[in-house]
Amino acid sequence: MGEAVSRPYRRTMPATWWLTNRAYFLFMVRELTSVFIAIYLVLLLVLISKVAAGREAYEAYLTFLGTPAVLAFHVLALAAALYHSITWFNLAPKGLVVRVRERRVPDAIIAGSNYLAWIAVSALLWWVVL
């Protein structure tokens, strides 16, 4: 019999761990949607300041928003924002426990009401602005 030796072997995690499986990758995509949203908010704030600055500045900025690169960014940002919304609503029941008469409201109903609110708010904004 050999002598018992304890020399635990430690494995390290590469910085690319999130590329090793689909779930990890989708998690990282979900987290990075926030970068697109932040950049969009900055562009929106600039837009508002241009509105305040006057018609010429505002129209010049609209032209800038219409350039292919900026437009492409917004298309990507829209995809990112949609992905954020869907993942957010699907995960909402995880932290949210709602009870009606001692019964827990099923996850599907919590997520479903989130989606309904989303559609209602989006339609309202669209209608107000356009």
Binding site: L62, G66, L71, L78, H84, S85
Partner: peptide, 24 residues
């Protein structure tokens, strides 16, 4: 996260795409 989930997509569609393309 809630605010962004509810209104970010429609906001981006409005100012980043509709306004930029001069749809309306």
């Amino acid at each position: 996260g809630v605010v962004a989930a509810l209104v970010a997509p429609v906001q981006i569609a409005l100012t980043g795409i509709a306004a930029a393309l001069g749809w309306a």
